[in-house]
Design a protein around this nucleic acid. Structure first.
Length: 549
RNA sequence: AGGGCUAUAGCCAAGCGGUAAGGCAUCGGAUUUUGAUUCCGUGACUCGCAGGUUCGAAUCCUGCUAGCCCUGCCA
């Protein structure tokens, strides 16, 4: 069971009341994705809500694939969705499919027909649309509406038996063509589609619509609280109509909440698909994607995503959450977990002119100063080291306390070094720095004679391990201008750097996470890192109050 | 405009008639061998607007305004 938590929201309050009043003995929720795409962080909000709410009240949560439209769905998505939920750390009480209940749904439809609550429509889609009316004008009743029960029964059975082509007929609920709620103007319950289904194969050529299928699925599974997003609010009367008229005992209630929107992010399946199809990214699991698989590959931890979902709350107000909140929880989670190590992403060589020609020493370094139990490692130091190119300036501005001519800085875990000279190539690019070190300032020696303003990270040259670093920036630039979201795609969302890491990083494994000193949190790319080639994805930068310029 | 819903700080969000929680972000300051972390401090004379009820209103009532959703045989 989940420990008690401090988060409350209107849905939890509804459940609390329902439990107190005895309306339900136990709570059952479900996460009901359609297997037609990959899960993203917006789904994570729903997953966390459903699983943790049920868990908190000692209830259960099913994973149920809403596979009522074989035209769009595929097994491939079923597997990726299962994997993502498991990775997040949730274990469904049961894994079900809407298609498991096709027989039951068919019987319920027949029952509605027998009671005069549904009829077979043979008007074309176009004609049905015309009769539906508009937002401000009531619809008109279809001639099919007054067909006899016997005829309806016969036609529906023939629909099932494949006697009609796609779109030739539908089964409609007989509700109210003049309802101000469009969903109640005799909504379609079943349509004909001669399409093979990933689960039921060619058994069916009629498939139930969401509005009919979903409440039945909930009722069959004994779901008590059926949570969905705001756009289904207008469907609730229809949901309730189905529940009231179905011959099932359970009485699930639908409750709607606002979906998640994130700054610098697009969330709709359509847009994400476009980014993939038009090669703005490398696939659904590109580390820049807000998909669960993208976040996982980028290096986000399940806990950081879950904590984010808990903290943003649940309400009915449209919202746009700052991505920096997500990043905050990643840093928070990794702070005590990720080993510190040093990586130079854009190297510049430093020659320590007064260090012995063939000297090499191993220095002790803590693995995580905030978590001493992680122990120590040893890192080499010698006459030649690499530091970050941006840690040296010929002509620094005020308050630049890194290295510049005639300045002294600390090299992390090693010594103070003092810059005396530097060399440039024909393009004016700095190629080498010449420094001296002061043996008295060795780290751990307790030296207090002088203070320096800056501490730089480094990698010793002879032992340095080459590595590739992939630095990610927002995929979407919220400040950009344009009519189409593609105008907002950041063309510089990926920067690749080649540099060095410490020798003890040779044996890292896929998805290992580190804090590169002064840079941020990085994760070993699971797809493209090999034994010969280290590839690190930057998950998120460290915060910084330093602003050059 | 017919219906449904929403409105509390830059963002998310608690609050449920007794006098505005918390988080993120921002900006200060202290500590610091990460310009990080940590720590401390920082913002709503007011809750979309206008009226009303009440000793007392973000909370109740009325009327406005703004935004989102609904006319798939998608979910």
């Amino acid at each position: 069971m989940t420990e008690e938590n401090n988060y409350t929201h209107f849905i939890k309050q509804i459940v609390e009341k329902d439990m107190e009043s005895g309306a339900y003995d136990t709570i059952v929720t479900r996460f009901p994705p359609e297997p037609n795409g990959y899960l993203h962080i917006g789904h994570a909000k729903s997953i966390v809500l459903n699983f943790e709410l049920a868990d908190e009240f000692g209830g259960k949560t099913n994973l149920r694939f809403d596979d009522t439209n074989p035209l769009k769905e595929d097994k491939e998505y079923v597997e990726s969705i299962k994997r993502d939920i498991e990775w997040l750390g949730y274990d469904p009480e049961a894994v079900r499919f809407a298609s498991d209940y096709f027989d039951e749904m068919y019987n319920q439809a027949v029952s509605l027909i027998k009671r005069g609550l549904a009829y077979v429509e043979d008007l074309s889609q176009e004609e049905v649309r015309k009769l539906r009316g508009t937002l401000t004008e009531p619809g008109k009743e279809s001639p099919s509406r007054e067909r006899s029960v016997e005829e309806n029964l016969d036609l529906f059975e023939r629909m099932k038996n494949g006697e009609f082509g796609d779109g030739e007929k539908t089964l409609r609920a007989r509700i109210d063509m003049s309802s101000p709620n469009m969903n109640l103007r005799d909504p379609v319950l079943y349509r004909i589609s001669h399409t093979e289904h990933h689960n039921t194969g060619n058994k069916w050529c009629i498939y139930p619509m969401y509005s009919f299928a979903h409440p039945l699925e909930d009722a069959i599974e004994g779901v008590t609280h059926s949570l969905c997003t705001l756009e289904f609010e207008d469907q609730r009367p229809l949901y309730d109509w189905v529940i009231a008229n179905a011959e099932l005992d359970a009485e699930p209630k639908q409750i709607e909440f606002a979906r998640l929107n994130l700054t610098n992010t697009v969330m709709s399946k359509r847009k994400l698909k476009q980014l993939v199809d038009e090669n703005y990214v490398d696939g659904w699991d590109d580390p820049r994607m807000p998909t669960i698989s993208g976040l996982r590959r980028r290096g986000f931890t399940p806990e950081s995503i879950k904590q984010f979902c808990r903290e943003i709350g649940v309400s009915k107000a449209d919202n746009l959450v700052d991505v920096r909140m997500l990043e905050h929880f990643l840093r928070e989670d990794l702070k005590l977990e990720a080993p510190r190590t040093m990586a130079v992403l854009d190297p510049i060589k430093v020659i320590i002119t007064n260090y012995p020609e063939d000297g090499l020493e191993w220095l002790p370094a803590d693995i995580n100063p905030e978590n001493e139990s992680m122990g120590m490692r040893e890192i080499p130091f010698s006459r030649e080291i690499y530091i970050e190119r941006e840690d040296f300036m010929e002509d620094p501005p005020k308050k630049y306390f890194r290295l510049f001519p005639d300045n002294e800085v600390r090299i992390k875990h090693a010594y103070f070094i003092h810059c005396h000279d530097y060399k440039k190539d024909e393009n004016g690019q700095i190629t080498e720095l010449y420094c001296t070190y002061d043996p008295e300032t060795k780290s751990g020696s307790g030296f207090t004679g002088r203070k320096v303003k800056g501490t730089l990270h480094y990698v010793e040259a002879s032992q340095a391990v080459p590595a590739e670093f992939r630095l990610y920036d927002s995929l979407i630039d919220d400040e950009a201008e344009g009519d189409n979201f593609l105008d907002f795609v950041n063309g510089e969302s990926l920067t690749v750097k080649h540099g060095f890491v410490e020798p003890n990083m040779k044996d890292v494994k896929a998805n290992d996470k580190f804090q590169f000193f002064r840079h941020g949190y990085f994760s070993v790319d699971p797809e493209e890192a090999t034994d010969e080639k280290l590839v690190f994805n930057r998950i998120v930068e460290l915060k910084s109050s330093f602003k050059l310029k």
